[in-house]
Design a protein around this nucleic acid. Structure first.
Length: 365
DNA sequence: CACGCGTGGCA
DNA sequence: TTGCCAAGCGT
């Protein structure tokens, strides 16, 4: 008496048509992305960095502004850290911009400001991983490298009916892609795989009936495409309470520059994680005195602003207060600025929520 | 190698 | 409302 096997039988797929079918679809259905007009190496690279874990629609305005301000490698290599961060403000994953800044300096110094075409040189630059190297080298130079992002992993997991994206399966997937990609159009092939994943072979509701390669797809034949790849269990995200202050003196407020790994180099109002709200104002006053040597008079305590980061949720209680006395003490890098100077600094997101809250309420700085 | 790293959209 | 995830990389 065997166990009933109603698992579908994996079909031996002939992938020799993959490139032809895919590119035929891509030529008719590709979106006209602004960063794919001329496929110049620098343009492609900038877009690939911005597109990491970020949606196309979010990237477009940042990309256009960046290209206007930093049209080439040399302009990036000569830019200040401040102006780089200001152009990246709000886009997230700020180390991308810091790594690109470092890479531009290396390219100016070692490669005469010309983006290297060899895998070994390009892949070693800070912020360039296997995906970005493959994408840039294939799209800008038509080199035969695969670019395997989250979309491509999902498409290939379905084509080959692999539930687990183990290192072994990923190597298998890459070898198949490399074998069957159109070597005359490697950049288009890679982008077509990604576009298919984003627009047709989507995570939740794949449009299998419209898919140009459904006849060579194991997951489609199985009738349960969303079972590939299997979902991975994620860690639950903790929540933390913070207290922060809009500390005023006359028409100015106090801001500080972050020196931690997270949001490094970005500006913020003084804020601190607290364990509970029992001694909220007392904790806040102590924090401000210990950190800046400032005593404050509290005007108003606002209800919490919520903000979600990738790995924790923040409830930020903001206190409106005025500086009463101060002693000379500088632990952090900080600055007193007027309201109209806010646009001169790169703030991280939650500060803009604070500013807009105060604008609505009692903003008379 | 599993985790830290931002933000916005969408179900 | 809350949770999930997106053209990944560094450690």
């Amino acid at each position: 008496m065997g166990i009933a096997k109603n698992f579908f039988k994996k079909v031996k797929i002939n992938m020799s048509e993959l490139s032809t079918l895919l590119l035929e679809w891509f030529d008719l259905n590709k979106r006209g992305l602004p960063f794919r007009k001329n496929n110049k190496p620098y343009d492609v690279w900038v877009s690939e960095i911005m597109l990491q874990q970020t949606k196309v629609d979010t990237v477009i305005p940042y990309y256009n502004a960046w290209m206007k301000k930093f049209p080439n490698i040399e302009s990036v290599s000569e830019a200040s850290e401040e102006s780089i961060l200001k152009s990246w403000e709000g886009l997230g994953y700020y180390s991308r911009s810091r790594n690109f800044h470092k890479a531009a300096k290396i390219i100016k110094k070692n490669f005469n400001s010309k983006i290297p075409e060899s895998w070994d040189d390009f892949r070693l630059l800070p912020g360039v991983g296997d995906y970005t190297a493959g994408a840039v080298l294939s799209i800008a130079f038509n080199k035969s490298y695969v670019a395997v992002d989250g979309n491509v992993k999902r498409v290939m997991a379905r084509l080959t009916s692999r539930k687990k994206l183990s290192q072994y399966n990923l190597r298998f997937i890459k070898s198949k892609l490399l074998k069957y990609m159109d070597k005359n159009r490697t950049g288009d092939f890679n982008q077509a795989m990604m576009e298919l994943g984003a627009c047709v072979c989507s995570l939740r509701n794949p449009k299998c009936e419209q898919c140009p390669i459904n006849k060579i797809c194991n997951a489609y034949i199985s009738g349960k495409p969303t079972e590939y790849p299997a979902k991975v269990v994620k860690k639950t995200i903790p929540s933390h309470i913070f207290v922060g202050g809009l500390i005023r003196v006359r028409n100015k407020i106090l801001i500080q520059k972050r020196e931690e790994k997270m949001l490094n180099g970005l500006w913020e109002i003084p804020m601190k994680k607290i364990n509970n709200q029992k001694n909220l104002t007392k904790d806040f006053k102590n924090f401000i005195f210990n950190e800046y040597g400032i005593t404050v008079k509290i005007n108003k305590v606002f209800s919490a602003i919520k903000h979600s980061y990738s790995h924790f949720n923040m409830k930020l209680i903001v206190i409106d207060c005025e500086k009463t006395t101060s002693i000379a003490k500088k632990k952090n890098m900080y600055s007193w600025i007027e309201k109209n100077q806010i646009n001169n600094y790169a703030f991280h997101k939650v500060n803009h929520k604070v500013f807009s809250l105060f604008k609505k309420k009692t903003w008379n700085v």
